[in-house]
C-alpha cells in the first residue's frame, strides 16, 4: 500500500523513466546540439532521437523528488520541536555506532560509482562493471544494515510520532536505495548488450546521479535522526 503511494517516486517512476524514454528512439541522441534560444531541434526535424532530453527530464524529476524528502524533513523538524510527546516510553535515543559505519559505506559508494562512470567514459568496460558491482554491493550492505537495525529497535511504527517518523523516513530512503541498486543492476545487464553505449551513456549518468542523490539525502537524514538527539 505504502509502496503504491511512494511508487511514483521509487518504483515505476525512476525505474521507468530513462528506460521508457530511451526505448523509443535509441538512435543518435548525441547529435542533438544544446544551443540556447530553443534551437535544440535545429535542422534535424522530427523523428530523430529524443534521447538527449533524458537527462534533462531526469534532473527535473530528481529535483521534484527531493522535495518529498524536504517535506518529510520539515515534518520531522516540526514534530521534534513542537510535539508534546516524543520518544516512546523507555526509549533513550538511537544507537549511533552501527548506523555510522553504514553511513560511511553508503557515502563512499558514491565515490565508487563515480569511478565506475569515469571508467565507462574512458570505454574501460571491465573496470566499469567492477566498480559498478562494488557500488551495488555497498548499497546492498547498507540496506541489510538498515534492516538489522530495524529488527533490533525497541519501538515500532505505531509508537507515537517519533516511531512513525523514524520508520517512514528511513523506510522511504531505504526504498530509494533498493531501487538504486535495481537500476544499477539493469544498467549492468545492459552493458553486456553490444552497441549499448553508441547512443551515449545517459542511462548510466542518470543512475549515477540518482545514487549521489540518495547519498546526499542520507547524510541529511543521518544528521537529523542520529546526530540531533537532544530536544
Amino acid at each position: 500500500m505504502a509502496e503504491s503511494l511512494l511508487g511514483g517516486s521509487t518504483g515505476p517512476g525512476s525505474g521507468g523513466l530513462p528506460e521508457l524514454a530511451a526505448g523509443r528512439h535509441p538512435e543518435g541522441p548525441e547529435s542533438r546540439p544544446d544551443e540556447p534560444g530553443g534551437n535544440s531541434l535545429g535542422g534535424h526535424g522530427g523523428h530523430g532521437g529524443h534521447g538527449g532530453h533524458n537527462l534533462t527530464g531526469f534532473v527535473i524529476f530528481l529535483a521534484s523528488e527531493s522535495l518529498i524528502f524536504a517535506a518529510l524533513f520539515a515534518a520531522y523538524i516540526v514534530f521534534k520541536r513542537s510535539s508534546p510527546l516524543w520518544l516512546p516510553p523507555g526509549v533513550e535515543g538511537l544507537e549511533v555506532r552501527e548506523p555510522l559505519i553504514n553511513t560511511l559505506v553508503l557515502v563512499s559508494s558514491s565515490g565508487v560509482a563515480w569511478l565506475a562512470e569515469r571508467a565507462l567514459h574512458r570505454r574501460q568496460l571491465g573496470r566499469f562493471r567492477l566498480w559498478w558491482l562494488l557500488t551495488m554491493a555497498m548499497g546492498s550492505w547498507f540496506v541489510l544494515g538498515q534492516a538489522r537495525e530495524w529488527m533490533g529497535l525497541p519501538f515500532g511504527l505505531a509508537d507515537g510520532v517519533f516511531g512513525a517518523c523514524f520508520y517512514l523516513l528511513t523506510g522511504f530512503h531505504g526504498l530509494h536505495v533498493i531501487s538504486g541498486v535495481l537500476l544499477m543492476a539493469l544498467m549492468l545487464w545492459r552493458s553486456f548488450q553490444p552497441g549499448n553505449y553508441d547512443g551515449g551513456e545517459a542511462g548510466v549518468t542518470a543512475v549515477g546521479l540518482f545514487w549521489h542523490f540518495v547519498d546526499v539525502i542520507w547524510i541529511v537524514l543521518f544528521a537529523l535522526l542520529y546526530l540531533w538527539q537532544d530536544r
Binding site: L5, L67, I68, L72, A75, A158, G163
Partner: peptide, 22 residues
C-alpha cells in the same frame, strides 16, 4: 507542490491504515 502533498498523503495513509500518530 505535488511532492509535498504526496508526503502528507503518505502520512495520512499510515495514520489511517497502520496506526501511526503523525
Amino acid at each position: 507542490g505535488l511532492p509535498v502533498l504526496t508526503a502528507g498523503a503518505v502520512m495520512l495513509l499510515f495514520d489511517l491504515s497502520f496506526g501511526t500518530s503523525f
